[in-house]
Amino acid sequence: MQFLNGITLLLVYQLVGEIIVRLLGVPIPGPVLGMVMLFLTLMVRGAVPAALDQASGALLSHLSLLFVPAGVGMMVHFHRIAAEWVPITLSLLLSTAITLVATALIMQFTTRWLVRSPEADDAEQGGRPNA
């Protein structure tokens, strides 16, 4: 029964996300908005209910099955993919390169920002050793 309660909770958040997107015309998918709302709810609560934990665990254990519809969709539209393989390949390669560069720059920035060197600490203290 807990699994059913957890799935119901997930579907309610998805439904609420869909309703908000359709009413307000928000340019994001309803399930994504529902997931963000669920995340915020769990952050406020500070814990995951047992029913939601059980349902999400079961869904994650069968996650590979959720890729079957995407694979079928690719086979249905294979003729279009074959006809437009150059722009698809270029966009995939370009977006991957942009993501890698952006991730590297963000990681470099946050590392410099969060990890302070001993020289910077000494300079702030006027070169005095820590007592």
Rank of each mutant, 00 (worst) to 15 (best):
L60C: 10
A104H: 06
R22I: 01
R45G: 08
D121Y: 00
S64F: 12
I28A: 10
F78W: 14
M74S: 04
L60A: 12
F109T: 05
R22Q: 13
R116C: 00
L33T: 04
A123Q: 10
G46F: 08
G17S: 03
L15E: 03
E18K: 08
L66F: 15
I81R: 00
R45D: 06
P29T: 11
T41K: 08
G57P: 02
A83P: 03
G46D: 13
G57F: 06
P27K: 06
T110K: 05
A97I: 10
A83D: 15
L94F: 11
E84Q: 15
S64Q: 06
W113P: 00
Q125G: 00
L60K: 13
A82S: 13
I7T: 05
W113Y: 08
T8W: 09
L59C: 11
M74G: 08
Q125F: 07
I81V: 14
A47S: 15
A123G: 00
D53L: 15
S56Y: 11
P49H: 01
E124W: 00
A120L: 08
N130R: 12
P129Y: 02
Q54H: 09
S64L: 12
P27R: 11
L66K: 05
S95N: 12
R116L: 07
P69N: 09
W85M: 13
P87M: 07
Q54Y: 03
L38Q: 01
L66Y: 12
A120E: 13
Y13C: 07
R80L: 14
D53M: 06
I98F: 10
T89Q: 02
G6W: 00
P69A: 08
A123R: 14
V68T: 10
A97Q: 02
Q14A: 15
V68P: 07
T41D: 12
S61T: 14
L59T: 10
L33A: 05
F39Q: 08
V86A: 07
I7N: 00
M37H: 01
F39S: 14
L90W: 06
E124A: 13
R80Y: 12
G30S: 03
R112Q: 08
Q2W: 01
I20L: 15
A82W: 13
L9Y: 01
I7D: 00
I106C: 05
A58Q: 11
I20F: 04
L38E: 04
M75P: 03
L23E: 12
M74L: 15
W85R: 09
A83G: 15
A58N: 07
F78R: 10
V36K: 02
P129W: 02
H79V: 14
L52A: 06
V32R: 06
V101N: 07
V72Y: 12
V44W: 12
R128H: 03
R80V: 07
P49V: 01
M1F: 05
I81E: 00
M43V: 14
V26F: 14
G34W: 04
I88R: 03
R116N: 02
G46H: 08
G30K: 05
F39K: 08
I88V: 15
V68R: 05
A51T: 11
V101C: 03
P29D: 14
A83W: 04
L114S: 12
I7S: 01
L10Y: 04
L9W: 03
I106H: 05
V48E: 06
V32D: 09
I106D: 02
T110W: 08
M35P: 00
L24F: 15
R116S: 10
D53A: 15
L33R: 05
P31E: 05
L9I: 07
F78T: 05
S61L: 10
H79D: 14
L66C: 09
F3E: 04
L33E: 02
T110I: 06
